[in-house]
Design a binder for these strands. Structure first.
Length: 483
DNA sequence: AACGGAATAG
DNA sequence: CTATTCCGTT
């Protein structure tokens, strides 16, 4: 009550008229049934949300490696988070504790040495949010494979710049090659990340393999023209701008994420086509794996994905979970890493959605990892929860005004002013988004929807467009098979 | 600043 | 489960 949080917005369908049909969210997107307890917005979602908005660049922004962001104004971020959660006493100390909990889940990592700097493990994030994204076109995956071999790196990001680079040449090459996966080698924990990657990549790829609607209701001409934010997956890109009710910069109600996944699913002919028996998919596989070194070739991909009958909705939860489970368990790592993972992955991609199941290798149904015993099972995913505008319906805590309680900083009146000024320190004034050269944004997900043709340098096998074609063919084939 | 245990809330 | 709150340590 006291909080001006919006909660009902979520409960009712988002202004249908405003949304392209394809973008309607599946019911589950609104309903956190997947997890017990009220599924409120999760911190990392919130962070992403802030990160996505230019208005908050003075407070938090992408910086450094892919997925790396800096909280420029910890107090402000905490304040905003507190508002969102109706926790007037929120502060950076507490918020950071929550952030730390993400370490084990591998959603986030701390960038050591840099104050207030953290790094997202996007694969995980994406996966979690869009478990069903069709990852059929997974040139990425393939690309990823080499990482394993690569020298260990120090950081943990799942998506290597390399990979991204190959996919989206326009992305800045900030990642000096290193790292993505942090210790590919045997660090006990390092490996966990491995699988996660794929999903992410895959999902990115899927963008272009999808029907236009996937790209959003509004045509975007310039290839990489997502504003800073980028991520086609995140809501902001679409919802914020288009929803009349919401002020463009308004963080709050924005949480309506048009979930691409969903639209994708809606449109895909057979999202699960990939689940078909391996034999059937050979053709596909071939194509996909071509580049991937044959890792897959020999290994019969053990796809353990159960076939889902038709209803996507039904399966979605499961999948989601699975997906998120994917890289998670530490345990899983062995599996993956060794080969199996590689094989699985490749296959998964090749197959299309398969990545999900495979990824976890065990994930799919492997009870094995399930709580292998980790102390707290870092693997717990933070599954879906895409949306949530939610929030505090009842929280109140009787701490009425934030502004008051904020105490210390009279942060600019209490709200949306953004300390733009501060940014100057970081590198001068921020250019207008529009004027911002596309390449400077470290935004990891940015430009994931390449509209332009792949660069010549891209191996044909990895060419998105080719894959697209291939996929289409594949799909058709499968359809026939099915019928 | 950053970390992580412990208790606790929802 | 995901935080929130506290808090001692590094």
């Amino acid at each position: 009550m006291d909080c001006n949080c919006v909660s009902d917005l979520l409960l009712t369908p988002p202004v249908p008229a405003l949304w392209t049909p394809g973008f309607a969210f599946p019911d589950w997107a609104y309903k956190p049934e997947s997890s017990p307890g009220s599924r409120q917005i999760q911190l990392w979602h919130f962070i992403l949300e802030l990160l996505q908005k230019e208005e908050y660049q003075g407070v938090i922004a992408w910086q450094g490696d892919y997925g790396e962001f800096v909280i420029k104004d910890p107090d402000e971020v905490a304040r905003l988070w507190g508002i969102r959660k109706c926790k007037p006493h929120m502060n950076y100390d507490k918020l950071s504790r929550a952030l730390r909990y993400y370490y084990n889940k591998r959603i986030l990592h701390k960038t050591k040495g840099k104050r207030f700097t953290y790094k997202f493990n996007f694969s995980k994030v994406v996966l979690v949010n869009y478990p069903l994204l069709d990852m059929a076109s997974s040139p990425f995956l393939l690309a990823q494979n080499h990482f394993n071999g690569g020298a260990a790196t120090t950081d943990c990001s799942p998506v290597t710049p390399e990979a991204l680079q190959s996919l989206f040449p326009r992305l800045p090459d900030s990642g000096r090659g290193t790292a993505l996966f942090d210790r590919a080698t045997g660090a006990p924990e390092g490996d966990k990340l491995r699988l996660d990657t794929f999903p992410f990549l895959g999902s990115g790829a899927s963008c272009y393999s999808k029907p236009p609607s996937m790209l959003g209701p509004y045509p975007r001409n310039p290839a990489f023209d997502y504003s800073w934010g980028f991520n086609p997956y995140l809501p902001g890109a679409l919802s914020l701008n288009n929803c009349p009710k919401l002020p463009p910069g308004s963080l709050y109600p924005s949480h309506f994420y048009p979930n691409p996944l969903q639209s994708g699913l809606a449109q895909l002919p057979h999202p699960f086509s990939s689940l078909l028996p391996p034999g059937e998919t050979t053709g596909t596989e071939r194509v996909q794996t071509a580049g991937a070194n044959s890792s897959v070739g020999g290994q019969a991909p053990r796809l353990c994905i159960p076939s889902y009958p038709g209803s996507l909705l039904q399966g979605r939860t499961e999948l989601g979970i699975l997906g998120s489970g994917i890289g998670e368990r530490e345990r899983g790592e062995n599996t993956n890493i060794t080969g199996v993972g590689g094989g699985g992955i490749g296959v998964g991609l090749g197959l299309g959605l398969g990545s999900l199941g495979l990824g976890s290798g065990g994930g799919v149904q492997s009870p094995s990892d399930r709580r292998a015993g980790m102390k707290q099972d870092p693997g717990s995913d933070s599954e879906l929860e895409i949306t949530d505008l939610s929030d505090c319906s009842s929280e109140n805590e009787n701490e009425p005004d934030f502004s008051a309680s904020q105490g210390k900083e009279n942060r600019i009146g209490g709200r949306p002013h953004i300390p733009e000024a501060k940014t100057a320190g970081l590198g001068g004034t921020l250019p207008q988004l529009s004027s911002l050269p596309p390449s400077i944004s470290p935004h990891p997900l940015k430009s994931l929807v390449p509209l332009s043709p792949p660069p010549p340098s891209l191996p044909t096998s990895l060419s998105p467009s080719l894959i697209l074609v291939e996929r289409h063919r594949e799909t058709e084939t499968l359809k026939l098979a099915h019928s």
